[in-house]
Amino acid sequence: MFSLCHEYAHLIFHRDRDDVAGPQQRYKSRGRAISPEEKVANHFAACFLVPESALRKQFAMQGGGWAYEETVMRLKGTFRVSATCIIDRLSKCKLISPQNASYLWAMANRKGWLRSEQQPIVEPLNYQGRLRILCRKAWESGTASELFIAELLDLDRKGLSVLLAGWYEEQEAGYFE
């Protein structure tokens, strides 16, 4: 996903440049001499995928303060980006001290995270939980039919019946009003 957002940033920010020759254009993408175009594209992708307000909230839920490897791994899983992206965002959003950032970058370098991703995310995205919540809200407001909800959630008649029975029961109990 990061790569897709990164390339999208090139389309947004660099398409009008006279020296951009399309996909074959080569930018220095690693090391100290990284090109300004790559910095812009990386920054855009990182901000898009790891918004500061969401990172602040998630970091606070992890306990805030000093970030450890475990903190980075949890946030990495939450935002589905690389560990180095999380370290970069924690630092740029000033959620960690410069000393903590140096500690994390040294660890990332020592463990090879700059070359090979630690604990890569292999499971596919799952929007089913969010989709179910949105379906419930639409059902409660009367803007989605039961048939439409069944199609969206890929439920047969029995599955839909069980789902709706639970929703009705919760409504009658006054849990969600």
Rank of each mutant, 00 (worst) to 15 (best):
E69L: 14
E69Q: 15
E69A: 12
E69M: 12
E70R: 12
E70D: 12
E70S: 14
T71A: 08
R74N: 14
R74M: 14
L75C: 10
L75Q: 07
K76A: 04
G77P: 00
G77Y: 02
T78H: 15
V81K: 01
V81I: 05
V81T: 02
S82A: 10
A83K: 00
A83T: 05
A83W: 01
T84I: 11
C85M: 09
C85D: 04
I86N: 01
I87T: 01
D88M: 05
D88R: 08
D88K: 07
R89A: 01
L90M: 09
L90I: 01
S91G: 06
L95I: 03
L95R: 02
I96C: 11
P98K: 13
P98T: 02
Q99R: 11
N100C: 15
A101S: 13
S102H: 10
Y103V: 12
Y103M: 13
Y103F: 15
Y103D: 14
L104H: 06
W105G: 03
A106V: 10
M107E: 11
M107S: 07
M107W: 11
M107Q: 11
K111R: 15
K111A: 08
G112D: 08
G112I: 04
W113C: 02
R115A: 11
R115T: 10
R115D: 10
S116C: 07
Q118G: 07
Q119E: 14
Q119P: 01
Q119V: 09
Q119A: 13
Q119R: 13
P120I: 04
V122Q: 15
E123G: 03
P124F: 09
P124Q: 15
L125T: 08
L125D: 06
N126H: 05
Y127L: 12
Y127N: 12
Q128T: 10
Q128Y: 15
R132A: 07
R132G: 03
L134N: 06
C135L: 00
C135S: 00
R136Y: 06
R136F: 05
K137N: 15
K137T: 11
A138I: 04
A138K: 10
W139P: 00
W139Q: 00
G142S: 05
G142P: 03
G142T: 09
T143S: 09
A144G: 03
A144I: 09
S145H: 09
S145P: 00
E146Q: 10
E146P: 00
